[in-house]
Amino acid sequence: MDDTCAGEKSHLFCGFFLNFSLFGTGVVYTLTSATSMRAIQRANCYHRDGHDAPCSVGGDAYYMFLFGLAQAVLLQIPGFHEMAGLSVFAAVMSFFYSFVGVGLGVAKVIANGVIMGSIGGIPMVSTTQKVWRVSQAVGDILFAYPFSLVLLEIELINTHEMRFDQMKDTLKSTPPENKTMKTATRASLVITAFFYLCCGCLGYAAFGDGTPGNLLTGFGFYEPYWLIDLANLCIVLHLLGGYQVYTQPVFGFADRHFAGDAASVEVPVPMLGKRRVSVFRLCFRTAYVAATTALAVWFPYFNQVIGLLGAFTFWPLAIYFPVEMYLTRNKVMPWSKQWVAIHGFSLVCLLISAFASIGSAVGVFGSETS
């Protein structure tokens, strides 16, 4: 955050929520990767033994540990500036499985010949349960909405392109960074909203009240099994790369403030030979991966976890700090119509975030104790 728009306390407050969100994203990625890896085995089993086969392939914990082990090795990659290619690779994987999900949803709706579901959604036993379920759904939406983390990737790509242009020594000057950021932000919002809406709406239209939480891992679709396998593999590859991108800011902060003159040791890395790494870097990053993996194993409730994370970080990162920066930069007079309207909007978003937080917390801890 710009120090001209916020004091030191606000700066630290924003940093806390941003790093918390990055850490929570690591937990969600660990959960999702395990679900996708298990889905690949189950898809092959259903294809081989029939759709009614038990196809028990064990719990998700084993796959979470595999994902964590892979990240513990990959996270020794130094430097945030080296993540540009990895980010592009992860984005390509994301586009592929998104297209697969949308395509299968369209095919299912056409095959059914009717749009499933109802405006009231899934019926619940009591009104209280319905309210909690709605609040969890709102939390899931809030997790999908904020693009504060995406800006890290945009900044990375923008910086990479600027360096490339400087190396070529072109006569045409690089566009101003704020214009590049605005263009990339608009494009990312439109594309992301399009795929989220398509997957959500087509999924419910295809399966109605029986819609799985994840179209590609909930086995709403069984065939073609090879396409589902490939889409889930792309999810895993996307999450491997995405985990790397989203954790680098945390590690960069830790390296700058705590690494100091830490000793270095030689560590054997598969396929790369021996590499010298900082002892602090090795211990901190390994502990970080262990923490995200442990939490994912402890709370293996995908929808509830992302709902809680989204609800908790939505208001401070996506509403409060951007609003305060806007008011400060544009010198909006206190208690003017614009000031009151903007703060009213912020208050409404805070109430929505609180509502979603409570419901998602009930979902997470209620599932844990049941």
Rank of each mutant, 00 (worst) to 15 (best):
A287P: 01
P268M: 04
L317Q: 08
N330P: 02
G85Q: 09
R163C: 07
A91N: 14
K337M: 09
H47R: 15
M167N: 14
H81D: 09
A361T: 02
F207K: 09
V106L: 05
A294P: 00
G200A: 14
A39V: 10
A341L: 14
Y63L: 15
D49K: 08
K182C: 11
T247S: 14
G50H: 06
M167R: 15
C5Q: 10
F99K: 01
T292V: 13
F312N: 05
L18G: 01
M333P: 03
A263R: 07
S21P: 11
F99P: 01
P316E: 07
T30G: 15
T183N: 11
Y320K: 08
S148I: 14
G59K: 11
Q76R: 03
G273Q: 14
H238C: 09
N112G: 02
R276K: 15
T159S: 11
Q71N: 06
L104R: 08
F314R: 03
F321V: 03
L75E: 01
S94G: 06
A187H: 07
A137P: 00
L327Y: 07
C5H: 02
V100H: 03
L240E: 00
E324W: 00
P54V: 12
P224D: 08
F99Q: 03
V57T: 08
L240C: 11
V364S: 04
G363N: 04
L189K: 00
S278I: 12
S135A: 12
G103W: 00
D169W: 15
Q248V: 11
G15E: 01
P334G: 06
F96Y: 13
D165L: 13
L156S: 06
W339K: 04
F143I: 09
S118H: 14
E8K: 08
T211P: 15
I119C: 10
L66F: 09
V28L: 14
V114E: 10
A39T: 02
N330V: 11
V305I: 12
S173Q: 13
T183W: 12
I115W: 15
V150S: 14
Q136C: 01
D140A: 06
S94D: 05
Y222W: 13
G241D: 07
S336A: 07
L31I: 15
A53S: 10
P300I: 13
M37P: 01
C14Y: 10
N330W: 10
T292L: 04
T170G: 15
L237H: 04
C199F: 04
W226P: 05
T25H: 14
S346K: 05
M37C: 11
T185S: 04
V28F: 14
R281S: 06
G220E: 12
K274Y: 14
G85R: 09
G213S: 13
L149I: 14
L22C: 09
V190I: 12
P175K: 12
N112M: 03
I228R: 00
P334Y: 08
D209R: 02
R256L: 07
V297A: 09
S126Q: 05
L237N: 01
F221I: 07
L156A: 03
